[in-house]
Computed example of a mutant assay.
Amino acid sequence: MEKYIGIMSGTSLDGVDTALVETDGQSIQLLAQDFFAIPADLKQDVLDVCIGQQTTLVNIGEIDHRLGKVFADAVEQLINKNSLDRSTITAIGSHGQTVFHAPDSTYPFTMQIGDANIIAAQTDITTVADFRRKDMALGGQGAPLVPAFHKALFDHLENNIVILNIGGIANISIINGDQTSGYDTGPGNMLMDAWMQKEFGKPYDKDAKIARSGKVNHALLQRLLAEDYLQLPAPKSTGRELFNLPWLEQHLSGFTLLPEDVLATLAEFTALTIAEQVKGLTQNNTENELLVCGGGAQNPLLMARMQDLLPEWQLGNTLKYGIDSDYMEAMAFAWLAHQTMHNLPGNLPAATGATRLAVLGAIYLPG
C-alpha cells in the first residue's frame, strides 16, 4: 500500500479539495482530507476565461502560475494540518482547473491549467497531471475519468449501482462488470450557482431555501430541455463552455420571471436531466441503488425531486460504503496518480470513447 494525495478543483470553482489516501490500486482508504478556498479575484479571472471573454496569452500564463501556487498551498495545508511526513507520499495527482473542454470540435482539445511544476517544486513531491489529453489522443472525450475509479471501488457489489456526482456538471458512473461506463448528463450546480451569484450575490443557495420559495416555470423548463447536448448519445462530456450564464440568459429572452422562480426552474432542470438518464438503467428483481456525491448531494430540493422522479431507486450517499462523498473526486485523482506511477491504465473506454485502455498523465519530478 502506498500513500497519494489527490487535488480536485471542479467546475463550481468553490475551492480546492485535497485527499490523502492509501491504496494498492484495488482497495483505497481515505486517511485525511481538507478544503482550500480559491481567492475571489482568481476565481473571477478563471470564470472570465471559461465563458469566453477576451483574454491574452499573458493572462492565461499568469492564471496557470497562480493556480499552480494555490494547488501547492492546498497540499501544504493538508500536510501541515495532519503533521504528515511528505517523504512517505509517493505522488500527488492533480486534476488541474478546466478552462475549456472541446472534445467534439474539428481539432478536439481540452485545457486544464495549474502548473504542476510549481506543485512538485514547492511540495517536493512527485506530481502527476494532464490526465485527460492521452485519452483524447486515442479518440476519447477525455472525460469522465472518475468511472474507472468507481469501478475499482464498487465493482464487487451485487446491487445495480449507479454513482451520481453532482458538481458543476452532473455525471454518472454505471457499475456493471465489464460493461461499466459513464458520462456527463448535463448541468449539476453550475447554472444554479451562476444565477445565485448574479441575482443574490451569493455563491450558492444554501439548503435550497431560495429555490424552494420559487415556482417552476414550465415554459422556460421546456426551452432548457430542448438543448441539443441532452439528446446526444453517450459517450459524451460537457462543461462551462456550454452551460454558463450567457447560455441561461439567452434562454431567458422573452421571459419576465422572479429570480426565485428561475432558480426553482433550474433545480427542476437539473433533477429531470439526471433522472431521465437513470430511469433507463433500472433493473428488475434487484435493488437499484443511486449513490450521490458532490456538492449537489447537500441540496435537499434536488435530492427530494430525484427521489420523486425515481421511485424504483434507493437514493443514498457513498458514506454508506465508507467513502466521503465530498472528497470522492479528489480521491479519484489520487488513485489515477497511482495508476500512472505503476504504468497501469486510468481510463475506461466505455465511458470516454477512447479506442483502448491507456496510462494517463505526465509525471513532474520535484528536482
Rank of each mutant, 00 (worst) to 15 (best):
I125E: 08
A219Y: 02
G139I: 11
L248V: 06
T98S: 09
F269W: 06
D24R: 14
I174N: 08
Q250N: 08
S94Q: 02
G280D: 04
G201M: 05
C293I: 09
L245E: 01
L221S: 04
Q250F: 04
S94Y: 01
Y204C: 03
V292S: 08
Q277P: 05
L263Q: 07
S9W: 14
I118M: 03
K202G: 00
V146I: 12
F333C: 11
T286V: 14
D104E: 11
L67F: 11
K279I: 02
D205R: 11
K206N: 05
T123P: 02
Y204T: 02
K209N: 06
T18K: 14
P147Y: 07
E62A: 12
L290F: 05
E289P: 10
M328C: 14
A350Q: 15
A275D: 00
R305W: 02
A32L: 10
E260F: 06
N288W: 00
L30V: 11
E287V: 14
I5L: 05
A170M: 03
T286H: 13
D261N: 15
I174M: 10
A152D: 08
T256C: 01
I92R: 00
Q250H: 09
N317K: 13
Y183M: 03
P203W: 04
T286A: 11
D64S: 15
E276F: 13
G68Y: 11
G296S: 13
L248A: 08
D34S: 15
A271Y: 09
L263I: 03
L309I: 10
C50K: 13
T318G: 09
D324T: 14
Q277C: 03
C50A: 13
T355K: 15
L290K: 00
D17N: 14
I63G: 07
H156S: 12
Q179N: 11
F333Q: 07
P246Q: 02
T265N: 06
P103H: 01
N284V: 05
W195Q: 11
S87Y: 00
G188M: 10
V58E: 09
Q54V: 07
D184I: 01
Q112N: 06
G316S: 07
L263C: 04
V128W: 05
D155V: 15
R305A: 00
S94V: 01
R223Y: 00
K215T: 01
A362F: 04
N343G: 15
D115Y: 10
K202Y: 00
L252I: 03
A275G: 01
Q112E: 00
A121K: 12
V70D: 04
I174T: 06
L281A: 05
T270E: 02
V292M: 07
A129V: 05
L301Y: 15
L20T: 07
I174H: 11
N160H: 12
T88K: 08
Q97K: 08
L164Q: 13
L31D: 00
D104C: 08
G140I: 09
L221T: 04
G168V: 09
V359M: 13
D17F: 15
G322F: 03
H218L: 03
D48F: 12
I210S: 06
E76H: 15
I7R: 12
P108S: 01
L319D: 09
L281G: 06
